[in-house]
Write a protein that binds this DNA or RNA. Structure first.
Lengths: 198, 198
DNA sequence: GTCTATAACTAGATAGAC
DNA sequence: GTCTATCTAGTTATAGAC
């Protein structure tokens, strides 16, 4: 099972890498073909169009993120543990990927309308997992009035790591994730001083 | 002075909008010409290449962000006030722009190497303004060991608003900014419970 | 499943007239 | 400063052979 990837799987993986490197528009199918080791025209045996390729990739990525995060969160009932699990999972997936590589939210705009709707719906599902985590924490006294805003902040923070993370940096992904979750958790504590409303 | 924009200024403004809407690669110069009201070929009187156009835009945007933020931060000596100013400024600029519209960090990869270096340098200068703010706060007892990480988090949080903000939403930009700064500030407090290191 | 060849189109950039 | 016309190169996608 270890190395039994079909050419189609390899193709999808390379496509994800290429889209992430270059961006959907800039990525060129001849280059993709070259990386996979076939000719440009042969690609169309595997998919109908570049657009379909992007859509299928983002779809698969979202599925992996949703099921992956759900599985992580399921390993504990403690919201605080879940919060840390979220940051670890999200940052790891965003920066390293699993089978596939995370493709920037920025590429959403390159999806045709109906494809766009479907991906957005899955992105919402993912966000709802985080919202639920926060609601669970609320029962423990976490300060979570606006759970939508807070879940967005968590996701943004995690995704943002992609912008600066380097393998040779001083912090491992787990260390980054733990600092992020610690910082984030502090923001949920009641009785914060300062910055009372105007 | 109110409406005396030269064609060149209009052109740059429309180009920024177009790049933000469509992305550098997807943006098409004939479309740009159409929006400005001239023919495609005429554009090249104003700039030498599409790449130069992107570079000049990002350069101007970074200059505006740096000088704009520096000015905001200069209006107070209190780090907490400055923190709120940062979020207000950054979110406002990112979401609404000023003369120009914020172009995503994602477009950085479309800059040729030497242009890239220059923009990255300015992005660092911007970040350093935030780092300085945090260091000032440290003297007041803020928990700021890793000011680089923390400044990145602040900037990421702010920029992330662009991904979901809608004009018809319930929160104004100032309200969002204030919630963000409040949340962020809480994370800087000493004596946070929970999440002690593994 | 993959190859070769090519159609159909798009987009950046140039040249010279006005 | 802008127009028209055009060059050139690159890209997605198709068709039919193997």
């Amino acid at each position: 099972m270890a190395n039994s990837k079909s050419r189609k799987e390899i193709l999808f993986q390379e496509a994800a890498k290429l889209f992430r490197e270059k961006d959907y528009q800039a990525a060129n199918l001849r280059e993709l073909a070259k990386r996979v080791g076939i000719q440009g025209g042969s690609l169309y045996y595997h998919f109908a169009s570049k657009q379909e390729l992007l859509f299928q990739l983002m779809n698969t990525i979202m599925d992996q993120m949703i099921s992956g995060l759900a599985a992580e969160l399921g390993t504990s009932d403690d919201p605080l543990t879940q919060l840390r699990s979220f940051f670890r999972f999200h940052i790891r997936f965003t920066v390293c990927g699993s089978d596939l590589v995370y493709i920037s939210d920025d590429e959403l705009r390159h999806l045709e309308p109906e494809n766009y709707q479907q991906i957005i719906a899955k992105r919402d599902s993912y966000q709802q997992l985080v919202e639920q985590l926060l609601k669970n924490g609320q029962k423990l006294g976490w300060q979570v009035e606006d759970y939508k805003l807070l879940s967005r902040i968590a996701i943004q923070m995690g995704t943002g790591v992609l912008g600066w993370y380097r393998q040779d940096g001083t912090l491992s992904i787990e260390e980054i994730a733990d600092r992020y979750s610690q910082f984030y958790y502090c923001g949920l504590q009641p009785g914060s001083k300062g910055l009372t409303a105007d």
